[in-house]
């Protein structure tokens, strides 16, 4: 029975990963949130804390983003020349954020970020 449950979780993981990859390949973002929302159906029931689940989801986004970048690179103009200037802030911010992950409870940041996301969505739809 436990074996069957593992098989189902594995199948769900493949499907959830495919959905996250599809969104990332199509929209260049948004796959990570889907992984975090679907995490309870995939990750072990007891073994991981929410922050561990988030760290795992972030690790999944690495190969998905790499595959997407490789695909976008085949399309002329989709990988502009100004890209290298985003490398340093990405490395600094990514490292800093992960180091602060255990320290900060970013409740206010989440509220601001969510409001900013909704506002951005409205702006993009105008």
């Amino acid at each position: 029975m436990k074996h069957k449950s593992t098989l189902v979780k594995d199948a769900v993981a493949l499907i959830l990963g495919a959905a996250a990859g599809f969104i990332n390949g199509l929209l260049g973002a948004g796959g990570g949130i889907l992984l975090v929302r679907g995490a309870k159906h995939v990750f072990p029931d007891s073994a991981l804390q929410p922050r561990d689940v988030f760290a795992s989801a972030l690790a999944v986004m690495l190969p998905i983003s790499a595959a997407s970048v490789a695909l976008y690179a085949t399309r002329g103009g989709a990988i502009p020349l100004q890209m290298p200037r985003f490398v340093l802030p990405a490395l600094l911010g990514g490292t800093g954020g992960a180091m602060l992950l255990s320290v900060i409870e970013p409740r206010l940041l989440k509220l601001i970020f969510a409001a900013l996301t909704v506002w951005s969505g409205i702006m993009m739809l105008r």
Partner: peptide, 8 residues
């Protein structure tokens, strides 16, 4: 990047 790393 900081927000992403923080899990926000």
């Amino acid at each position: 990047a900081l927000l992403s790393g923080l899990g926000v």
